[in-house]
């Protein structure tokens, strides 16, 4: 088994909506893989196909060396899942839900359970209907993290958590990685993905548009430059690879494509560099760049 998850050309339609449109996704064992995309881009659909809850219309999906639809029950012994929108049984306490889900998976470590309850500051005696959204999320997180599954599938697991709890969650994921577990983390909280993930796949409208390590993705995209020059620079706007130039006398701000950086810096040096700040693109910018195309297309469609 070379991959924990391997999906190619996955298609899933609901009536006339094409939720997944030839999606590719590869997750290697032992990595924390970020799965990024705007709302409605198909993240949850992909995960539910991987869990054998939905049946793909076309394409192949392999999970831990098995077929997620055919071998669902056997595969589920080896994974734990946190849904994006956790609903609990209104008359079961949180502790009962954690124990039930753990036992169905073949038992859970009581020490680890107690430790997680304490770290997440969760009262296990409350009934399901009395928990807030964040606390329902914690119930599902404790149930998943207390298991000894080799693969964790987390669908927007921190929605509803406060910043302190989000930090606890990050620590937990780092510990899981140290133990050699594989994590698929679907999210649209970019700082979380940036902090935790080894590799990232960005999807849009049911297709993967980027996939790779964060460094690889950054290399493919633009660096933002802010510089103060000795004298105003001519011809900067005309250079290939320069975008969004804002010039205020001798101060300039712009973005430059990864491959053109050398050429553009040489041009700046010609004008005398007084100060220079260069910032690699944040994941947010990466993400927005793909998403912006969407917004643009929608605006065009609306204008028609």
């Amino acid at each position: 088994m070379n991959t924990a998850i391997s999906v190619s050309g996955l298609v899933k339609t609901f009536g006339r909506t094409r939720a997944l449109d030839g999606l590719d996704l590869t997750v290697s064992p032992g990595e924390v893989h970020g799965f990024l995309g705007p709302n409605g881009s198909g993240k949850s659909t992909t995960i539910r196909v991987l869990l054998g809850l939905l049946r793909a219309d076309a394409g192949t999906a392999e999970l831990l060396g098995g077929d997620p639809w055919r071998d669902a029950t056997a595969l589920h012994r080896r994974l734990a899942y946190v849904p994006g929108d956790v609903t609990l049984w209104p008359n079961l306490s949180g502790g009962e839900v954690i124990d039930l889900l753990g036992r169905l998976r073949g038992g859970l470590d009581p020490r680890r359970r107690a430790e997680l309850l304490e770290r997440f500051e969760l009262d296990p005696r409350k009934k399901g209907r009395a928990y807030s959204k964040g606390n329902r999320q914690k119930v599902a997180l404790v149930a998943a993290l207390a298991s000894d599954a080799e693969l964790l599938i987390l669908d927007e697991p921190t929605s509803g958590l406060d910043p302190l709890m989000e930090e606890v969650f990050r620590q937990c994921v780092r510990e899981e990685r140290r133990r050699g577990r594989t994590v698929l983390l679907s999210s649209h909280i970019l700082s979380e993905v940036e902090a935790l993930c080894d590799r990232v796949t960005i999807i849009r409208r049911g297709r993967a548009v980027e996939s790779g390590t964060l460094d690889e993705l950054r290399h493919l995209t633009r660096t933002s430059i802010q510089a103060e020059l000795a004298r105003p620079s001519d011809g900067l706007a005309g250079l290939a690879g320069v975008h969004g130039l804002e010039a205020d006398g001798a101060r300039v701000r712009f973005e430059v494509d990864g491959g053109r950086l050398d050429e553009v810096l040489r041009h700046l040096v010609g004008s005398g560099v007084v100060s220079l700040v260069s910032r690699p693109p944040t994941l947010e910018e990466l993400f927005l760049r793909h998403y912006a195309d969407d917004l643009g297309a929608e605006a065009k469609a609306a204008a028609r």
Binding site: G95, E96, I98, D99, K126
Partner: peptide
């Protein structure tokens, strides 16, 4: 509404047991 138990009874360990509970 009263609080529930912090831990599940040992019998709550199968889909049938959950269905019965519900």
């Amino acid at each position: 509404s009263r609080p529930g138990p912090a831990q599940a009874a040992p019998s709550l360990r199968s889909p049938l047991a959950l269905a019965w509970r519900l």
